[in-house]
Protein backbone atom coordinates (compact mmCIF):
# COMPACT_ATOMS: atom_id res chain seq x y z
CA UNK A 1 0.00 0.00 0.00
CA UNK A 2 3.01 2.28 -0.44
CA UNK A 3 3.10 5.47 -2.51
CA UNK A 4 -0.65 6.01 -2.50
CA UNK A 5 -1.41 9.53 -3.70
CA UNK A 6 -5.19 9.49 -3.79
CA UNK A 7 -7.34 7.30 -1.59
CA UNK A 8 -11.09 7.59 -2.11
CA UNK A 9 -13.51 5.86 0.24
CA UNK A 10 -17.25 5.66 -0.42
CA UNK A 11 -17.31 9.01 -2.22
CA UNK A 12 -20.77 10.41 -2.96
CA UNK A 13 -21.48 13.64 -4.79
CA UNK A 14 -24.63 15.23 -6.16
CA UNK A 15 -25.23 18.48 -8.04
CA UNK A 16 -27.52 20.94 -6.21
CA UNK A 17 -28.03 18.21 -3.64
CA UNK A 18 -30.53 16.35 -5.86
CA UNK A 19 -28.80 15.15 -9.05
CA UNK A 20 -26.48 12.31 -8.07
CA UNK A 21 -23.18 12.24 -9.97
CA UNK A 22 -21.13 9.78 -7.88
CA UNK A 23 -22.56 7.02 -5.68
CA UNK A 24 -20.01 5.31 -3.48
CA UNK A 25 -16.71 5.44 -5.36
CA UNK A 26 -13.67 3.67 -3.90
CA UNK A 27 -10.28 4.06 -5.49
CA UNK A 28 -6.56 4.01 -4.70
CA UNK A 29 -4.10 5.71 -7.04
CA UNK A 30 -0.38 5.15 -6.61
CA UNK A 31 2.49 7.39 -7.62
CA UNK A 32 3.71 6.91 -11.18
CA UNK A 33 0.68 4.92 -12.30
CA UNK A 34 -1.29 5.40 -15.47
CA UNK A 35 -5.00 5.25 -14.64
CA UNK A 36 -7.85 5.34 -17.10
CA UNK A 37 -11.49 5.95 -16.26
CA UNK A 38 -13.92 4.68 -18.86
CA UNK A 39 -17.69 4.83 -18.98
CA UNK A 40 -20.66 6.14 -20.90
CA UNK A 41 -21.55 9.84 -21.10
CA UNK A 42 -22.79 11.28 -17.83
CA UNK A 43 -21.54 8.40 -15.66
CA UNK A 44 -19.52 10.70 -13.35
CA UNK A 45 -15.98 10.59 -14.77
CA UNK A 46 -15.57 14.38 -15.05
CA UNK A 47 -17.08 14.88 -11.60
CA UNK A 48 -14.55 12.46 -10.13
CA UNK A 49 -11.68 14.30 -11.86
CA UNK A 50 -12.92 17.61 -10.41
CA UNK A 51 -12.94 16.02 -6.95
CA UNK A 52 -9.37 14.77 -7.45
CA UNK A 53 -8.36 18.31 -8.43
CA UNK A 54 -9.96 19.81 -5.31
CA UNK A 55 -12.50 21.87 -7.25
CA UNK A 56 -15.55 20.20 -5.73
CA UNK A 57 -15.85 18.16 -2.56
CA UNK A 58 -17.77 14.98 -1.68
CA UNK A 59 -21.14 15.13 0.06
CA UNK A 60 -20.24 11.89 1.82
CA UNK A 61 -17.11 9.75 2.07
CA UNK A 62 -13.49 10.86 2.13
CA UNK A 63 -10.67 11.79 -0.23
CA UNK A 64 -7.13 11.47 1.06
CA UNK A 65 -4.22 13.13 -0.68
CA UNK A 66 -0.78 11.79 0.32
CA UNK A 67 -2.35 10.10 3.32
CA UNK A 68 -4.18 13.18 4.60
CA UNK A 69 -7.87 13.79 4.13
CA UNK A 70 -8.57 17.08 2.39
CA UNK A 71 -11.62 19.28 2.74
CA UNK A 72 -12.80 22.53 1.19
CA UNK A 73 -11.58 24.50 4.21
CA UNK A 74 -8.00 23.29 3.62
CA UNK A 75 -7.90 25.36 0.42
CA UNK A 76 -8.36 28.60 2.37
CA UNK A 77 -4.81 27.98 3.64
CA UNK A 78 -2.60 29.61 1.00
CA UNK A 79 0.35 27.25 1.56
CA UNK A 80 -1.76 24.12 1.26
CA UNK A 81 -3.57 25.46 -1.80
CA UNK A 82 -0.33 26.47 -3.57
CA UNK A 83 1.39 23.17 -2.80
CA UNK A 84 -1.61 21.17 -3.98
CA UNK A 85 -1.97 23.19 -7.21
CA UNK A 86 1.75 22.77 -7.91
CA UNK A 87 1.45 19.00 -7.50
CA UNK A 88 -1.86 18.35 -9.28
CA UNK A 89 -2.77 19.68 -12.72
CA UNK A 90 -6.08 19.23 -14.54
CA UNK A 91 -6.62 19.49 -18.29
CA UNK A 92 -10.31 20.26 -18.82
CA UNK A 93 -12.47 18.52 -21.38
CA UNK A 94 -13.57 21.78 -22.99
CA UNK A 95 -10.55 23.87 -24.04
CA UNK A 96 -12.74 27.00 -24.24
CA UNK A 97 -13.04 26.83 -20.47
CA UNK A 98 -9.34 26.56 -19.84
CA UNK A 99 -8.15 29.13 -22.35
CA UNK A 100 -9.54 32.33 -20.87
CA UNK A 101 -6.67 34.77 -21.49
CA UNK A 102 -6.41 37.06 -24.52
CA UNK A 103 -3.39 35.18 -25.94
CA UNK A 104 -1.94 31.69 -25.90
CA UNK A 105 1.23 32.91 -24.19
CA UNK A 106 -0.67 34.58 -21.35
CA UNK A 107 -2.77 31.45 -20.92
CA UNK A 108 0.32 29.25 -20.65
CA UNK A 109 2.06 31.45 -18.08
CA UNK A 110 -1.11 32.15 -16.04
CA UNK A 111 -0.58 29.16 -13.70
CA UNK A 112 3.09 29.67 -12.77
CA UNK A 113 2.53 33.44 -12.35
CA UNK A 114 -0.41 32.79 -10.00
CA UNK A 115 1.68 30.25 -8.08
CA UNK A 116 4.53 32.72 -7.61
CA UNK A 117 7.16 30.99 -9.77
CA UNK A 118 10.24 33.15 -10.53
CA UNK A 119 9.99 35.04 -13.85
CA UNK A 120 13.28 33.62 -15.17
CA UNK A 121 12.09 30.09 -14.35
CA UNK A 122 8.75 30.76 -16.10
CA UNK A 123 10.61 31.91 -19.22
CA UNK A 124 12.78 28.78 -19.12
CA UNK A 125 9.78 26.47 -18.73
CA UNK A 126 7.91 28.33 -21.46
CA UNK A 127 10.75 27.76 -23.93
CA UNK A 128 10.88 24.10 -22.92
CA UNK A 129 7.14 23.55 -23.27
CA UNK A 130 6.74 25.31 -26.63
CA UNK A 131 9.55 23.17 -28.03
CA UNK A 132 8.01 19.99 -26.60
CA UNK A 133 4.55 20.69 -28.02
CA UNK A 134 5.73 22.56 -31.13
CA UNK A 135 3.48 25.55 -30.48
CA UNK A 136 5.92 28.45 -30.89
CA UNK A 137 3.91 29.92 -33.78
CA UNK A 138 0.75 30.03 -31.66
CA UNK A 139 2.09 32.11 -28.77
CA UNK A 140 0.75 35.51 -29.83
CA UNK A 141 -2.52 34.23 -31.25
CA UNK A 142 -5.85 34.50 -29.52
CA UNK A 143 -7.38 31.17 -28.45
CA UNK A 144 -10.50 31.60 -30.62
CA UNK A 145 -8.30 31.53 -33.74
CA UNK A 146 -6.94 28.04 -32.96
CA UNK A 147 -8.12 24.68 -34.24
CA UNK A 148 -9.37 22.10 -31.72
CA UNK A 149 -6.05 20.20 -31.90
CA UNK A 150 -4.07 23.39 -31.27
CA UNK A 151 -6.36 24.35 -28.40
CA UNK A 152 -5.86 20.91 -26.86
CA UNK A 153 -2.08 21.25 -27.08
CA UNK A 154 -2.22 24.71 -25.49
CA UNK A 155 -4.38 23.46 -22.60
CA UNK A 156 -1.86 20.68 -21.98
CA UNK A 157 0.98 23.22 -22.15
CA UNK A 158 -0.79 25.53 -19.69
CA UNK A 159 -1.02 22.65 -17.20
CA UNK A 160 2.39 21.08 -17.85
CA UNK A 161 4.22 24.38 -17.31
CA UNK A 162 3.26 24.14 -13.63
CA UNK A 163 5.32 20.91 -13.51
CA UNK A 164 2.67 18.89 -11.68
CA UNK A 165 3.57 15.42 -10.39
CA UNK A 166 0.01 14.29 -11.08
CA UNK A 167 -1.56 15.06 -14.41
CA UNK A 168 -5.34 14.66 -14.69
CA UNK A 169 -6.84 14.76 -18.17
CA UNK A 170 -10.50 14.83 -19.10
CA UNK A 171 -10.93 13.23 -22.54
CA UNK A 172 -7.73 14.72 -23.97
CA UNK A 173 -8.14 13.12 -27.40
CA UNK A 174 -11.81 13.98 -27.88
CA UNK A 175 -12.42 15.34 -31.39
CA UNK A 176 -8.79 15.08 -32.49
CA UNK A 177 -7.46 13.66 -35.73
CA UNK A 178 -5.39 10.42 -35.49
CA UNK A 179 -2.02 12.16 -35.85
CA UNK A 180 -2.65 14.73 -33.11
CA UNK A 181 -4.07 11.96 -30.89
CA UNK A 182 -0.86 9.97 -31.41
CA UNK A 183 1.26 13.02 -30.61
CA UNK A 184 -0.61 13.61 -27.34
CA UNK A 185 -0.49 9.95 -26.33
CA UNK A 186 3.28 9.79 -27.02
CA UNK A 187 3.74 12.90 -24.92
CA UNK A 188 1.73 11.45 -22.01
CA UNK A 189 3.69 8.17 -22.16
CA UNK A 190 6.92 10.16 -22.12
CA UNK A 191 5.72 12.14 -19.07
CA UNK A 192 4.73 8.92 -17.32
CA UNK A 193 8.17 7.44 -17.98
CA UNK A 194 9.61 10.58 -16.39
CA UNK A 195 7.68 9.68 -13.21
CA UNK A 196 4.43 11.61 -13.51
CA UNK A 197 1.16 10.00 -12.51
CA UNK A 198 -1.40 10.15 -15.31
CA UNK A 199 -5.12 9.97 -14.57
CA UNK A 200 -7.28 10.14 -17.64
CA UNK A 201 -10.99 9.89 -18.46
CA UNK A 202 -11.78 8.74 -21.97
CA UNK A 203 -14.24 7.01 -24.28
CA UNK A 204 -11.53 6.25 -26.75
CA UNK A 205 -10.81 2.55 -26.24
CA UNK A 206 -8.04 2.73 -28.86
CA UNK A 207 -5.75 4.34 -26.35
CA UNK A 208 -6.75 2.50 -23.18
CA UNK A 209 -4.35 -0.43 -23.58
CA UNK A 210 -1.19 1.63 -23.77
CA UNK A 211 -2.36 4.46 -21.52
CA UNK A 212 -3.32 2.32 -18.53
CA UNK A 213 -1.75 0.32 -15.77
CA UNK A 214 -5.27 0.07 -14.35
CA UNK A 215 -8.66 0.74 -15.89
CA UNK A 216 -11.69 1.77 -13.85
CA UNK A 217 -15.07 1.12 -15.48
CA UNK A 218 -17.96 3.37 -14.50
CA UNK A 219 -21.49 2.07 -14.69
CA UNK A 220 -24.64 4.06 -15.33
CA UNK A 221 -25.26 3.81 -11.57
CA UNK A 222 -22.48 6.42 -11.13
CA UNK A 223 -20.14 4.04 -9.44
CA UNK A 224 -17.15 1.93 -10.35
CA UNK A 225 -18.39 -1.43 -11.48
CA UNK A 226 -15.02 -3.03 -12.13
CA UNK A 227 -11.33 -2.23 -12.20
CA UNK A 228 -8.30 -4.14 -13.34
CA UNK A 229 -5.52 -4.49 -15.87
CA UNK A 230 -6.45 -3.18 -19.34
CA UNK A 231 -6.07 -6.53 -21.13
CA UNK A 232 -8.57 -8.12 -18.70
CA UNK A 233 -11.08 -5.26 -18.86
CA UNK A 234 -10.94 -4.89 -22.65
CA UNK A 235 -11.60 -8.61 -23.11
CA UNK A 236 -14.72 -8.51 -20.97
CA UNK A 237 -17.11 -7.84 -23.83
CA UNK A 238 -20.25 -8.35 -21.72
CA UNK A 239 -19.08 -5.64 -19.32
CA UNK A 240 -18.28 -3.23 -22.17
CA UNK A 241 -21.58 -3.86 -23.93
CA UNK A 242 -23.53 -3.44 -20.73
CA UNK A 243 -21.87 -0.08 -20.06
CA UNK A 244 -22.24 1.43 -23.55
CA UNK A 245 -18.54 1.11 -24.33
CA UNK A 246 -19.03 -1.32 -27.22
CA UNK A 247 -21.85 -1.99 -29.63
CA UNK A 248 -23.07 -4.74 -31.91
CA UNK A 249 -21.92 -4.00 -35.41
CA UNK A 250 -23.22 -5.69 -38.52
CA UNK A 251 -21.77 -5.52 -42.02
CA UNK A 252 -21.86 -7.46 -45.26
CA UNK A 253 -19.19 -9.87 -46.52
CA UNK A 254 -20.16 -10.56 -50.17
CA UNK A 255 -23.69 -11.96 -49.76
CA UNK A 256 -23.56 -12.69 -46.03
CA UNK A 257 -24.40 -10.29 -43.20
CA UNK A 258 -21.90 -10.65 -40.41
CA UNK A 259 -22.57 -9.41 -36.84
CA UNK A 260 -20.05 -8.94 -34.03
CA UNK A 261 -19.30 -6.76 -31.00
CA UNK A 262 -17.30 -3.70 -31.95
CA UNK A 263 -15.34 -1.31 -29.74
CA UNK A 264 -13.06 0.60 -32.09
CA UNK A 265 -10.01 -1.33 -30.89
CA UNK A 266 -8.71 -3.63 -33.61
CA UNK A 267 -7.37 -6.54 -31.61
CA UNK A 268 -10.66 -7.11 -29.83
CA UNK A 269 -13.02 -7.45 -32.74
CA UNK A 270 -13.58 -10.91 -34.03
Amino acid sequence: MDNIIFELSDVHFSYLGKFPALCGVNMNIRQGEKITLIGANGCGKSTLLSILDGLIFPDKGSVKFLGKEFKETDFTDENFSKNFRKKVGLVFQNPEVQLFCPTVKEDIVFGPLALGTEIAEIQRRLEEIIDLLEIKDLLNRTPHQLSIGEKRKVTIASTLIIHPDILILDEPTDGLDPLTTRHIIDLLLQLNEAGKTIIMATHDLHIVQEMSDFVYVFSNNKTIIKFGRPDVILKDMALLLENNLAHIHSHRHKDKVHTHPHLHSGHLTD
Binding site: L55, S81, R85, K86, L90, F92, N94, Q98, G111, I162
Partner: peptide, 12 residues
Protein backbone atom coordinates in the same frame (compact mmCIF):
# COMPACT_ATOMS: atom_id res chain seq x y z
CA UNK B 1 -16.26 26.41 -15.38
CA UNK B 2 -13.79 29.18 -16.23
CA UNK B 3 -13.53 30.10 -12.55
CA UNK B 4 -12.79 26.45 -11.72
CA UNK B 5 -10.15 26.37 -14.46
CA UNK B 6 -8.57 29.47 -12.92
CA UNK B 7 -8.65 27.94 -9.42
CA UNK B 8 -7.11 24.76 -10.79
CA UNK B 9 -4.07 26.72 -11.92
CA UNK B 10 -3.56 28.49 -8.61
CA UNK B 11 -5.73 31.62 -8.95
CA UNK B 12 -6.47 33.14 -5.54
Amino acid sequence: DVYNAMLSRGYR
